[in-house]
Structures are given as structure tokens and as C-alpha cells.
Nucleic acid binder design. Structure first.
Length: 217
DNA sequence: AACCGTATCAACCGCATGGCT
DNA sequence: TAGCCATGCGGTTGATACGGT
């Protein structure tokens, strides 16, 4: 292993400390737990190993499929990918990708390229999304009523203010009632402060929902 | 049995980001 | 506004396990 392996005693001290004081405040954890480890090590050990509900063992086919899909959409954003796989850590996903999938997929791609040979296909890599600082809440996302149809999902934001970056500024509802062609670079200028239930909103989740939705058809 | 190459994965490192003063 | 500090993340390292020769 890279670095000094954690002992059972250290694990117990860390677990006890987290149980007592909760997560966060990692700079205090080594002192509170009585560990001779830096805060980063403590955090990593907890997140990747000691946290409850961590799933161990083989990745299922469903998980592997999802990882591949998500990686196609997000690139190496392991924490986001892991967030979609209950019980899996970013480190797990990253290791699995590096050990299993990257080689496998590279081989497949090379094979595919050889087959296509001259029939080049341009693949658009995930583009960075420009997010305004003011955008700090999650617009709730609901699938269309007719779940069986192939229509795209519609964010349930009244008077939403989502703008297409390359087309000047347009209001979503006024001019883009549906989300067709959503793979373009999109800027969320401001979102109505509506969804108070979760408090913290990750915009990437929302965009990912849309991308996954489109991808599934 | 000894050696070697490869796979696996826990741990570390460095950087980016955000909050606070 | 600048500087400092804590946190989080992705990349990388290196010890161990395991299979093949």
C-alpha cells in the first residue's frame, strides 16, 4: 500500500471520534481522536473505508454500465460518478476505472477506429459549464407526464431563467419550452429560489439528470 | 521453491476552490 | 482586495496478492 497502513486501533479511534463529534472539522480530528495522522489521512480513511454503508466487493454489471455512461458524460469526475453509485467511493470508482475499464474501453475504441478507418466520428467531450455564483439552489426536475414517450424532461421552474450561452440570452419558458438539443453549452444565469427542501444544490446533478435522460433514448 | 510480471487498492500528494478575516 | 486556512478532489505511488513460468 502507499503510505503507512491503518491499524485496527487507529480505525477504532477514528470511528469513535466521528461518532462523538460528527464529520467535518477534519483539522480537529487528529487531536480529538488522539491519532498521529494528518487531517487529510483521517478524512480519507473515513470516507473510503470506515464510513457506514460502504459497499465492498465486485461491481455489478449495472454499476459498470452506469460508470461507463457517467464517465462518458462527466469525464474523470469521480466524486460525482460515485455519488450516483450508492455505497461506492470515488476512490473505488477511480481504481476500478483505471484497473478494469480504461484498458478495456481503449482496446474497444482502437478496434472500433480500425473498423471505421476513414469514417471518422467526432465525439464531443463533456464541456465545462459556466455557473453563476448566484445559482445556489436546485431546480426541481421532473420527468414528463408521459414517461413512456421519448420527450425530454422539463425542469419545473416557473419563469425559469436558464439561458443558452451561444444564442444571446433567452428565457427558458418563453422560448425553449422543451429541452430539445440540451447537449449544447448551457449557462444557468439565475434560478428562482424555490426548492428549499434540500438546502444544498449541486447543479451538476441537474445537468447530469438531463444528459442521462437524453442518453437513455 | 524461487522468481517475475501484473493486478489491485489503500494511502499520499499537490492543486483548486471557497470561506473567513 | 488580498492573504490565509480548511476542505475536497483527481492523479499517482507503492505494498501486497496472485498467477504463470
Amino acid at each position: 500500500m502507499g503510505g503507512i497502513a491503518w491499524t485496527e486501533e487507529e480505525d477504532n479511534l477514528l470511528k469513535k471520534c466521528i461518532r462523538q463529534y460528527g464529520e467535518g472539522k477534519w483539522h480537529r480530528v487528529p487531536l480529538l481522536a488522539g491519532l498521529k495522522r494528518c487531517r487529510k489521512s483521517c478524512r480519507l480513511r473515513w470516507l473510503n473505508y470506515l464510513r457506514p454503508n460502504i459497499k465492498r466487493g465486485q461491481f455489478s454489471h449495472e454499476e459498470v454500465d452506469l460508470i461507463i455512461k457517467l464517465h462518458r458524460l462527466l469525464g474523470n469526475r469521480w466524486s460525482l460518478i460515485a455519488g450516483r453509485l450508492p455505497g461506492r467511493t470515488a476512490n473505488d470508482v477511480k481504481n476500478y476505472w483505471n484497473c478494469h475499464l480504461s484498458k478495456k474501453l481503449n482496446a474497444q475504441e482502437t478496434e472500433q477506429n480500425n473498423k471505421n478507418d476513414g469514417n471518422m466520428v467526432n465525439v464531443t467531450r463533456p464541456q465545462p459549464r459556466n455557473i453563476e455564483k448566484s445559482c445556489s439552489r436546485r431546480p426541481c426536475f421532473k420527468p414528463p407526464e408521459d414517461a413512456g414517450s421519448t420527450s425530454t424532461p422539463v425542469p419545473c421552474i416557473e419563469q425559469s431563467q436558464i439561458y443558452l450561452e451561444d444564442n444571446g440570452y433567452h428565457t427558458w419558458n418563453e422560448e425553449y419550452g422543451a429541452v430539445g438539443g440540451f447537449s449544447t453549452n448551457i449557462q444557468f444565469e439565475q434560478v428562482r429560489e424555490e426548492d428549499e427542501t434540500n438546502g444544498k444544490w449541486d447543479l451538476d446533478d441537474f445537468i447530469l439528470d438531463l444528459d442521462l435522460w437524453n442518453d437513455s433514448f
